[in-house]
Design a protein around this nucleic acid. Structure first.
Lengths: 193, 193
DNA sequence: GTCTATAATTCGATAGAC
DNA sequence: GTCTATCGAATTATAGAC
């Protein structure tokens, strides 16, 4: 509280710098993963001094945590036609992945960074499980149903945005929805096979 | 050809050392990814000197290439009941993932290592596309059908073996086959949605 | 074949001038 | 707030003794 007061809504120079650093960090983490995304490279992209990154975020871990902080805000099952739930979820996830590089960064880093994997697990299951709990035949199966949906959504994200399989990357958004929608629909609502 | 002759079938000391190094390398790459799997750590696991790894494999790249060299040997579509193709493929992939850590290592490294991603693309699509070409309605769609199958298979491998989502990791093999089998079946044989 | 020593980089993080 | 200089540690890779 000994800091200088800051009126709400104003833009300090430091806020712009922070935002620039975070944008560069997301790009680097999404492109290279955790280890190869160096603070020096992030700083170079943001055209500032590497020591500024440390000043603002304390450490590389702090930078990563700030860069991938996000709120998915999946739509609740209310207001969606039950038969369209699978397609709606796929379309929503697709939009989230393409909006920025936060999820791509999180996925790529999660492959080798335990804390990021934990974060991915929390982000997805905490958002998907409520949906599954609301619509699947047995609410106790919500974690199972949600994890099945996650496996297909993350698998498509992996082949499309991370591994860049041509046939996956070149699919139109509508085609992805048409193919994966029924899969998620079944994972959520079908009786146990 | 100036090397000492080696009768086929005998086991040199160096062959045992090579095999030990490769086993340790697979474990480390599977657990830590490319950057954090250091030659020193591999050597320590194999209880040999780090310089021996360089002597045998020339470089870290060479070690990785040798550690993940594998032949999937997917069963051809011949001899499988067409209606059981999806389930058969899922069961076969599951067995391959659990046989050793080669595929887990390849997947984890592929997230940040372009050469590994290229290898994963080749390994999977070259094995899956022929199957898809033989059974899908329009052979021209084989790459598309194969990439859809890959997205679901790799997605399950990701959540089960790499990110270790509890609900995915605790699934029994039969449950995985029951849930994913129909998905692959549809990706391979369904009419374009 | 095996090991020691070390070269050559590169990284995260810190100290401190301005 | 910004930058220079640098520390200490870790890495891959090489040279060479034994």
């Amino acid at each position: 509280m000994s800091e200088k007061q800051q009126a709400a809504g104003t833009v300090r120079r430091s806020d712009a710098t922070r935002a620039t650093i975070l944008a560069s960090a997301r790009e680097r983490f999404a492109a290279d993963g955790y280890e190869r995304a160096t603070i020096r490279a992030v700083a170079r992209d943001a055209r500032i001094d590497p020591s500024m990154v440390m000043r603002y975020f304390g450490s590389k871990e702090g930078l990563f945590a700030a860069a991938v902080s996000i709120d998915l805000r999946l739509p609740g099952p209310a207001g969606i036609a039950p038969r369209e739930l699978g397609r709606t979820l796929v379309a929503h996830f697709l939009a989230l992945w393409e909006k920025d590089e936060v999820l791509t960064a999180l996925l790529r880093v999660a492959a080798t960074h335990p804390a990021a994997a934990e974060r991915m697990r929390g982000v997805l299951s905490e958002q998907l499980e409520p949906v599954a709990r609301a619509v699947c035949p047995d609410p106790e199966q919500a974690p199972l149903r949600a994890s099945l949906c996650a496996s297909q959504v993350l698998g498509m994200a992996l082949t499309r945005f991370v591994l860049r399989f041509p046939a996956s990357a070149e699919l139109g958004r509508d085609e992805v929805v048409d193919w994966l929608g029924p899969t998620l629909q079944r994972y959520l609502t079908a009786e146990t096979p």
